[in-house]
Design a protein around this nucleic acid. Structure first.
Lengths: 238, 238
DNA sequence: AGTGACACTGTCACTAAGTGACAGATATTG
DNA sequence: CAATATCTGTCACTTAGTGACAGTGTCACT
């Protein structure tokens, strides 16, 4: 029985991971709705449980705290940025890549994803005044920072934990955070989505380029990556 | 000494403000010690209260949550950066200013402040693994970001909430955060303080300059500040 | 089909975080 | 000393979150 392990192990442990994510997202949707409608403090765990049709105990089995119920929705709202960064080819400029990816995204987005995105924006807005939610938002930004570190590391031919890379990644991620907050606030205040959307991707690329002192944004030649002409003090770190 | 306005007016509502800060700091010291020794989850509010010699109820009067007990110690550990930024004269370069301020600081620091700084570094380290503390650390970084926004705004002749300013401030603050984490981790891992200290202030200035795309760091002429092409990219913000 | 293993959920009792309300202590002012 | 306002301790209380146990559905193997 030890030889055909594959199918058994998948069906047991693997099915749940997908299912678990769906349940968490479902809980997160209801929690976000309630948080937005009544505030975080004004929403109890029991209310969330009732809204999603589960027992309170089960909520705590999926989320370690009330605030963290918002995490999946918030995380999903930066997921497209993560995906875009992951798929950024070496030979393209950031502007080009963001422009094409943004266009593709707009055409492919489903109504339910759009609703989730709306909730995500609201949570980000709420995070400015509700310190409890701020953690969730900053966690998502942290994800972006790590993804950026990986991308930048390969582009500059350095390790992801080199100080130089971490600095660039942190600065660029911070810029992305500010833009997200800015765009989100604009949307919620009634600015026309099209107006913001059209300029935003060019803006994003420019912000990343600036925040990294111009080190990240241009196309990279394959033979150029490992070369990295001594940038002084930074390379003594690993 | 202060028999006049200061003492009277403060004694009613405001005397407490100074005293309150001292009490909060005292609590924060004990909390940080315990957090470091036993972890955050392993430390109860009752323990903190007992360690500092107050009732548990009084702890909650000074801090809205257990984790926030760490805030004052963490905040104090970036206080010198805030002060240094506040006192940055227009006509000096960031490198010069940081170098002189750092020297002055090293000579003036008291043993108790040194102990507090040690605790602060430990809390920052702990924040990497304890999400509960991460909020405190990021709050402190947020302070730095706001201070930076104010400084950058006056240097560029823009408003503090202009998008351009917010982007620069966020990127620079993120860079400072990474450096703080890097230096702190180095200290805790036994690196010689002198080795890190000597290069760090030059490093800081350089990081800020890079993160702002070179826009922040140079001396500013007085007549140049308000000049900035006033209807440029950043003005769509109000 | 039957049986055991396992993952998921609900129920309930419990710990710990945090608040409200009241009373006593302390300090400042007149 | 009297008057007032802030600070603190005590205690009862709400709520977030956990541990333990039991019931249910699903899959695997026979």
């Amino acid at each position: 029985m030890a030889d055909h392990v594959v199918s058994t192990e998948r069906s047991r442990g693997g099915m749940s991971e997908q299912r678990r994510r769906r349940v968490r997202l479902e809980i997160s949707r209801e929690a976000a709705r309630l948080f937005w409608a009544q505030g975080v403090d004004g929403t109890s765990g029991d209310q969330i449980a009732e809204a999603v049709g589960l027992s309170t105990r089960t909520i705590w089995r999926h989320f370690r705290s009330k605030e963290s119920c918002a995490e999946p929705i918030v995380a999903q709202s930066v997921e497209w940025e993560l995906a875009t960064l992951r798929s950024w080819p070496l030979h393209r400029s950031l502007e080009e890549h963001f422009a094409t990816e943004a266009k593709r995204l707009v055409s492919e987005i489903s109504p339910s994803e759009q609703a989730d995105a709306g909730l995500g924006v609201k949570m980000i807005r709420l995070a400015e005044t509700e310190p409890a939610l701020r953690t969730a938002w900053l966690m998502a930004c942290d994800q972006v920072e790590h993804e950026l570190a990986a991308v930048i590391a390969t582009r500059l031919g350095l390790k992801p934990d080199a100080l130089q890379v971490r600095l660039h990644a942190a600065a660029a991620a911070a810029a992305l955070r500010v833009i997200n907050e800015y765009v989100g606030a604009g949307l919620l205040d009634g600015t026309d989505p099209r107006e913001l959307g059209d300029e935003s991707f060019a803006f994003i690329a420019d912000a990343v380029r600036t925040a990294t002192g111009g080190a990240v944004g241009d196309p990279v030649q394959l033979d150029e990556a490992p070369a990295a002409p001594d940038e002084g003090a930074a390379d003594r770190q690993e």
